[in-house]
């Protein structure tokens, strides 16, 4: 019970800020008499969210699906490349310029190419989500692996440990905090990727729904789409934070871990 109270006290300030922002938004719109076609009030947005929920839900599901599938592929590829270039100086020097160049391309620009290859719909959204989240994962995993203490590596080599032994027992666990930090960035980026692709070329998904809503001047529904995206983003971020804390608690050195 005491713990719940502690957490509540910790979270009180941020909760107050969130509520404050919405209250300010609501009052500002009322006071300045802003039309809901320009900027709807939070209460109108929530009303739209409830009213259109049966229509919003399939789009939400579609966006969540493309984001998560793209994210999963992105993580798998990102970890593989990260491990590769993190464990070999040569691979690092060889591949890094290409990776930087690749990541500098605005991902919106590649959506038309994916559409050209696969047609409009689910696949371009998945691919866009995937390529947008690879880079931060690669960089973080590679950094975690490349910064293993040389003394520790010597100790392992003296034990005649193979490269795989070192990777499995030392480098990978050591890279975990870096990896989870990158996951939280990557999941947010994956949403950006899939929504952008849906906006450009899809007939499903929150991005598409917002496009259609805005073309029919249903502005509260556009904002409801934003709320859904924000909600999904926060939810997934929270899930990864929780997993991160469970797995890499050692890196945060909280005293409560000692008991558990």
């Amino acid at each position: 019970m005491q713990r719940i109270l502690d957490i509540a006290r910790e979270k009180a300030a941020s909760t107050a800020l969130i509520i404050g922002v919405f209250v300010f938004w609501e009052l500002f719109c009322l006071a300045a008499n802003i039309s809901d076609i320009l900027l709807p009030r939070p209460t109108q947005i929530i009303a739209a969210l409830i009213k259109y929920w049966p229509a919003i839900w399939p789009h939400t599901y579609q966006t969540l699906y493309t984001t998560l599938v793209g994210f999963a592929f992105g993580v798998a590829i990102g970890v593989a490349i990260g491990v590769l270039i993190g464990s070999s100086r040569l691979a690092y020097d060889t591949a890094y310029p290409l990776l930087v160049g690749f990541s500098s391309i605005p991902k919106v620009a590649v959506v038309p190419i994916f559409v050209l290859w696969y047609g409009a719909g689910t696949v371009p959204a998945i691919l866009t989500a995937m390529i947008i989240c690879i880079f931060p994962i690669v960089v973080n995993v590679a950094t975690g692996i490349a910064t293993v203490e040389p003394e520790l590596e010597d100790v392992m080599k003296t034990l005649k440990a193979s490269k795989l032994d070192i990777l499995w027992n030392v480098s990978l666990p050591r890279a975990m905090p870096y990896f989870f930090a990158s996951l939280k960035v990557a999941i947010a980026l994956a949403f950006v990727g899939s929504v952008v692709a849906e906006t450009v070329a899809s007939n499903r998904g929150i991005g598409n729904m917002m496009m259609i809503a805005s073309s029919s001047f249903n502005v509260p529904l556009v904002f409801a789409g934003l709320f859904v995206l924000a909600g999904l983003g926060v939810l997934l971020y929270a899930i990864f934070s929780l997993i991160e804390h469970r797995i890499t608690g050692w890196a945060h050195r909280k005293t409560d871990l000692a008991a558990g």
Binding site: E149, E151, L152, D154, V155, M156, T158, L159, K160, A161, D165, N169, V170, P173, R174, M176, T248, W250, A251
Partner: peptide, 28 residues
């Protein structure tokens, strides 16, 4: 079989002391 110890203890922070000490048994 060689054992090695440096000035920097380089214990793995994610393992408890028992598992840290056990590490060579996992490899050698």
């Amino acid at each position: 079989r060689i054992g090695m110890a440096y000035q920097n203890p380089t214990l793995l922070p994610w393992l408890n002391i028992r598992d840290n000490v056990m590490l060579p048994l996992k490899i050698v």
